[in-house]
Amino acid sequence: MEFGLPLEDILQKLAEEGYRISRRTFLYYVQLGLLPKGKRKGQKSGGVKFYYPTWTLERLKTILRLKKQGLTLKEIKKRLPREIPSPLPPKTFPQTARLKDCNVCGICGAICPVHEEMDLSPWRLIQAWLEGPDSLPSANTPWVCVGCYLCEERCPREIPVVDFLRFLRREGLPPGKRWRKHPEWSRIFWSLLEERGRSFDFGAVHAYHIRIIGSGENQRLFLRLPGPEGEKEVSAPSKIKNLSAFRRALEHAREWP
């Protein structure tokens, strides 16, 4: 289970974004080692297609940009990160063996406080995963879960339900089946965190009730609580000391899948 893109899709996506490149050039770049090698995969129709890791797209764009600036392929090769990252390891849940013990008793769904908001109960996703990762339906469950651990506390088979949902949310589900809960809030949260080392926790609850105007020193934050108080301005979180080192470390920490 790996979610690479076929060559045709890569070329088409590039075309949509205004880059032009032929199939032959693409393969030439692969030959030169500028792009990663594709993986053969038999098709239902009978033919064979080559699949490339999704990051190939970004890398190709960089190559084309650098080429436009007049660099030679040799120079470009030097500029690009030397190691072509190996394709992502297959996404597996390390505790899959424990999931097999699920009794399908429904306790996790029954006790889940936010069950009504979920498309599917946790156990249905567990069963689908055991069926094979491709059978995973698209469901908001991993994102709706508030992490209360009631399900794990009650599960008669001691299934690591919360870890499993966390896995689905982070890496288990392919991009097409992901569910973005509140991109706007997420952006604000992370930008504050990166700018200051501190953020607002309550934003998580009030995803739709925070507003930021301006940036840098002119930044102003408004908060609207549901209820009669309405909107009020609040000060931005205080800052930690060495922000640039903090940011560097944060970037570094993102490296591992």
Partner: peptide, 25 residues
């Protein structure tokens, strides 16, 4: 002294390393 945000529930959206870093710091 110089504490930082623990990442709240948002760390669940980021790679494991991010949440661990925020806490480890």
């Amino acid at each position: 002294p110089d504490w930082n945000c623990c990442g709240a529930r948002e760390i669940e959206e980021a790679p494991e390393g991010v949440g661990l870093f925020l806490a480890s710091r």
